[in-house]
């Protein structure tokens, strides 16, 4: 008799037309083509199975085999991945990519093992920008303003460093809170600002590129170790190709969405002069020091080196 194919349930929280959604579909297509009968991928978009907060737990229970939450979601599983939240560590996506592909970056994928998870690869969303109801040119402009953040100690410290007020609010409530001006601003990538229509309710967007918002494609250690090495290698290869495909779309989308936002004239995009940018860096860089013990000074240094 023929053994039943290995089932991979890929659960994510966004629509199918996003880079992450496209990456998942691509992965399924490649697997269908090359590993037909051996592996079967089922993609569940739009939080159909689980939300981002519970998907990792479901994975540990063995009910989901793959997911791609944002890197900030892992702070309770490993402190090391907090490195990607540090402000002004990477100057652009090229530097991010370079670090992720470096030996240190790849070693980080294994940092979740103790908690039963295995990182399989990084997937891009893009560099984060600051949007607000008032123009933000220098750190003093952000002082006293309320910014929505994802749950992340680093992001909290980042806004506290410029004397702003970080507020944790569920993503689903952000639009309403921005629209009613109950909160003043938020940080996000071009594609999120565009797809969630934040630009319609935030008259100013500062092109700060102050941080990165990336995802980690992850699986459970139990599942992964249970596969034979040949199959593991083939799945990883398929995934790497799918991620490459997804990252290509993400890069295209970031610049296209930025252009759409500018063309809409709903929001003014502010560019920072070198002097202004230096002020932000000076204000926010102490955050690195604060998390140095948790992340590791060497690792931060290695990441910084990827800018050159």
């Amino acid at each position: 008799a023929v053994a039943a194919p290995v089932e991979i349930k890929f659960s994510h929280v966004v629509a199918e037309n996003t880079p992450k959604g496209q990456m998942a579909i691509k992965f399924k297509e490649i697997v269908d083509e090359r590993l037909a009968g051996k592996v079967e991928v089922k993609v569940f978009p739009n939080s159909q199975l689980f939300g981002d907060n519970k998907v990792l737990e479901a994975m540990l229970l063995g009910d989901v085999q793959m997911a791609a939450p944002s890197l900030s979601k892992f702070q309770k599983y490993t402190k090391k991945l907090q490195i990607f939240d540090l402000p002004f560590l990477f100057k652009d996506m090229e530097a991010v990519e370079k670090f992720q592909n470096s030996e240190d970056g790849q070693k980080l994928l294994g940092s979740l093992q103790k908690k039963g998870l295995v990182g399989l690869g990084y997937l891009h969303n893009g560099m984060k920008q600051l949007s607000a109801s008032q123009p933000l040119k220098v750190p003093a402009d952000a002082s006293g303003k309320k910014f929505r953040i994802m749950t992340s100690d680093v992001l909290q410290a980042q806004f506290e460093a410029v004397e702003a007020v970080p507020l944790k609010k569920p993503f689903s409530e952000v639009f309403t809170l921005l629209q009613t001006k109950a909160i003043d601003g938020q940080e996000n990538t071009w594609s999120n600002i565009y797809s969630k229509k934040f630009f319609e309710v935030q008259p100013y967007i500062t092109e700060s590129n102050h941080g990165v918002l990336d995802y980690l494609v992850v699986t459970s250690a139990e599942f992964w170790m249970g596969l034979d090495d040949g199959l593991k290698a083939e799945i990883k290869k398929a995934l790497d190709e799918a991620i490459k495909h997804g990252n290509g779309i993400a890069a295209q989308k970031a610049s296209a969405d930025k252009q759409q936002i500018i063309d809409s004239k709903r929001s003014e995009v502010l560019e920072l002069t070198d002097a202004e940018r230096a002020q932000w860096v000076t204000a926010m860089k102490p955050v690195w020091k604060k998390f140095e013990d948790q992340i590791g000074a060497d690792l931060i240094k290695a990441a910084e080196a990827s800018n050159n």
Binding site: E173, T176, L177, T180, K181, A182
Partner: peptide, 8 residues
């Protein structure tokens, strides 16, 4: 809700 103080 509409005056910008709070969510529902």
């Amino acid at each position: 809700i509409y005056g910008g103080i709070a969510s529902p």
